[in-house]
Amino acid sequence: MKLLSCPLNGLRNISEFTYGGEYHPTPDHQTTSSRDWAEHVFFHDNTAGIVIEWWCHTPSSFWFLAERNTLTDEVVRTFTPDELYTKSIIQHETKPETTP
C-alpha cells in the first residue's frame, strides 16, 4: 500500500487520507472579480510536474498540504497550512474598516 506522511500523525497508509484538490492562493474577496472567483473555485491547472495539493488525514480530520510530482507520483514533502496562511481569514474579515 502507498504511504503518506501526515505532519501531525506521521507515516500512514494512503487509505487513511482524502484528496482535497489543488492548492491555489485564496484571492482577496474584497477586490477579486467574479471571473477570478470562478477561476479559483472551479478551474484547475492540472500541471504535469510538482504541484501543491490539499490532503486530509481522515481519522483526525487534519488538513495539510503536500508537494507532489504528478509525473512520478513522488511526494516531495508535506507541511501544515500555517506555512502559507500566516493570518486568520476571520481576523481579516472582522478588522474594522478605516475611513479615508
Binding site: 500523525n9 497508509n13 487509505s15 488525514h57 481519522p59
Partner: peptide
Amino acid sequence: VAQTSLAKTNAI
C-alpha cells in the same frame, strides 16, 4: 495516542 483506522473505522 494514535488517530488512525481500526477495523476500517476511524478511531482515537
